[in-house]
């Protein structure tokens, strides 16, 4: 019999496979459950949040609901929120910009944006966003007017926060689907701002 490897020295991938074997033998979790959960999680994506943003841009009543109760606003568009933490929505306006971070771990509005991206979980983002948000968003090419007030929201507890970006200039008459297609993951966290056309990273004089 071989000496069992020290658990902490065991590569996480091997340890995880063994863990699943043990849990399956005990009837705690089955492969089919894992597959179903992965499918449900993959269904949440930035496209969900983008639909909310686009609706808020065209419908003032919906916008008011979204700012008052993000959870109900998501549900109103058929986005499953059962069991998800309460969702708060931070509205950008000309002269006001929000940036969301979780300095303690990786709290992220997963129900409406999907899995948190790699950068959101990184030490550099978590350390710098609360202290130098302008320097951080500049890494995406995002430049705000110097007199824009920047509110950094450290998502430390039971709420989850998404940003409602400003509707960009040059989108008059666009329908909701076209507007939703403009909105990217980073726009709803505040590292970028939406703009029409392919030049996504252009300076955001558009907010003025």
């Amino acid at each position: 019999m071989t000496t069992p490897p020290d658990l902490l020295a065991t590569p996480a991938e091997a340890l995880f496979a063994a863990l699943l074997d043990v849990l399956a033998a005990k009837g705690v979790v089955r492969e089919a459950e894992l597959a179903a959960r992965i499918a449900a999680t993959d269904a949440a994506s930035p496209a969900q949040g983008a639909r909310m943003v686009a609706r808020a841009w065209v419908d003032p009543t919906y916008r008011a609901l979204m700012l008052a109760d993000g959870t109900r606003a998501a549900e109103a568009l058929g986005i499953p929120m059962l069991g998800a933490p309460p969702l708060g929505v931070l509205e950008n306006r000309p002269g006001l910009h929000h940036l969301v971070v979780c300095t303690l771990c990786s709290c992220y509005p997963r129900a409406v944006l999907g899995y948190p991206p790699f950068w959101f979980k990184s030490a550099a983002y978590r350390a710098r966003a609360v202290r130098d948000p302008r320097g951080v968003i500049a890494e995406w090419g995002t430049m705000l007017a110097p007199d824009t007030e920047i509110v950094v929201v450290d998502s430390t507890a039971d709420y989850r926060w998404m940003v409602l970006p400003s509707r960009p200039d040059g989108t008059d008459g666009w329908d909701e689907a076209a507007l939703a297609a403009l909105v990217r993951e980073g726009d709803m966290i505040g590292v970028t701002v939406p703009s029409p056309g392919p030049a996504r990273a252009r300076p955001s004089a558009a907010t003025g």
Partner: peptide, 10 residues
């Protein structure tokens, strides 16, 4: 260096 104007924390 700092460039935030407000920090909101739960």
């Amino acid at each position: 260096p700092r460039s935030a104007d407000v920090l909101l924390v739960e």
